[in-house]
Amino acid sequence: MTVFLPAMLYLSSLLWRPLFHAAIIAQVAYVLSRGIALGRLPLVGLHDTLTFLSLATAVFSLPFQRSFKAQRWFLKSAALLAAVFAILGALASPSSSPLPPVLKTYWFEVHVVLSFFSYALFGIGAILGAVYLLSPDPDTEALQYKAILTGYLIFSLSMVFGGIWAFLAWGTYWLWTPKELWTTLLWLTYTLYLHLRFRPWWTGRRIVMTGIAGYFVVLFTYLGVGLLMKSSHSF
């Protein structure tokens, strides 16, 4: 029941806004309790990573909850996205087995935490893009750009930390696995987004849709590769 509480609160916040903050508090409490029980950051397996992604999406939506034209749609979409991840996380069985020695390092923890922070910001970027399509407004597009640019910084930082960890664990900063290729693809997608934005032809709907498309690459890199392909990463 505890595990479903944040999801229910996120969904209820679609009707009564203050419950969004209650959902965040409930989810923080759940993540903390998991961390205390496991004696480590709960960031291994679908259950914990989806829960963390839900929480990160909700928290990173907070700075963007300010006055712009279609703010109402943004708030509802952010709550819905956080709820979807929270429900999927609650449905997945938690992994409580001890960590293999190679994962017992701060490099791993920082790499994973930053990855999910960036995924959350890319999600916020996609929501802002969808909101722009519903109600075109240059401010919304500018907010999408800021969310994606910040996500890109954090994602790049996560890749650098991942490279350092890989060098210390596997003797090389780069491994030829589908996950690494998809991670590079994800990085290239947003690199392309940032460069396309310089071209006048790509203003408005086109650039906004590129930002939305990037999030599908995020979802495939995170969930698709882990579920469909053998890789150095479980998730």
Binding site: S156, V160, F167, G171, T172, Y173
Partner: peptide
């Protein structure tokens, strides 16, 4: 891996 150090320098510059 002779590329490790340049990769680290590149990463720091990029960030």
């Amino acid at each position: 891996d002779p590329g490790a150090l340049p990769a680290l320098i590149g990463g720091v510059l990029f960030i």
